[in-house]
């Protein structure tokens, strides 16, 4: 902590920072909530086109990424138990696994997106405008925006977990003060939660 002699000394309150994180998560839920409203309206208006366009997506990669996120969610959840038992080594390992899985998720996403780009599927592409119906264009517009926004959150999550690991190394996080670890965990579960809905809504329209 940098010097805070000009600030008020507030006692450490783990519950306050936890509620703070939850409130932030609420804003994220409504941010994506807005997107889900857009999605559901257009899906309702263009059921066949969404069906058709959904076939283009690779269910296998989507499923792999789902498994990755679920496992990483478990490892970061376990790390809060580990820190409570004051097992720093295990906490570190679990956070490391979470971090690696997050990077793997992004790699998969990268390959998935580049495959789409090479087929001429990207927002504003001439090929899409020429061959696709309006509903399909909307589907892919939403697909890129929503999974893109989700990937952005993965990046933020990676930054948060890295920060947590640094503070863990500096012994600023320990079994009596681990609110940052807990909050990174909560954030990471949020990323997972959103994917739990994105996966069936985009990849499982058959």
């Amino acid at each position: 902590m940098e010097s805070t002699h000009h600030a008020h000394h507030l006692p450490y309150d783990a519950e306050a920072s936890k509620i703070g994180m939850w409130l932030f998560i609420f804003t994220e839920l409504l941010l994506f909530g807005g997107m889900f409203i857009v999605y559901s309206v257009y899906r309702y208006l263009n059921p066949e086109a969404f069906h058709l366009a959904g076939e283009e997506l690779n269910t296998f990669i989507g499923a792999v990424n789902t498994v990755i996120l679920l496992v990483s969610s478990m490892t970061i959840a376990m790390s809060t138990s580990a820190i409570q038992k004051n097992d720093i080594r295990l906490t570190n390992i679990l956070l490391g696994i979470t971090l690696i899985l997050a990077v793997v998720f992004l790699f998969n996403k990268y390959f998935e997106w580049s495959a789409k780009f090479s087929h001429g599927i990207y927002p504003g592409s001439q090929e899409m405008l020429g061959t696709m119906s309006q509903g399909e264009i909307l589907f892919f517009g939403l697909y890129f925006v929503m999974t893109g926004l989700h990937a952005l959150h993965i990046l933020v999550g990676i930054a948060l977990i890295t920060w947590t690991m640094i503070e863990l190394k500096q012994k600023k996080i320990h079994h009596e003060k681990y609110d940052l670890l807990e909050n990174s965990g909560l954030y990471w579960h949020l990323v997972d939660l959103i994917w739990i809905f994105l996966f069936p809504l985009f990849y499982l329209i058959h």
Partner: peptide, 17 residues
């Protein structure tokens, strides 16, 4: 920037949304 179409009636979007 990209013309994703969500609010563009020319691409099937709904401005009322």
């Amino acid at each position: 920037i990209f013309g994703i179409g969500v609010f563009d009636p020319a691409l099937g979007g709904d401005p009322i949304l």
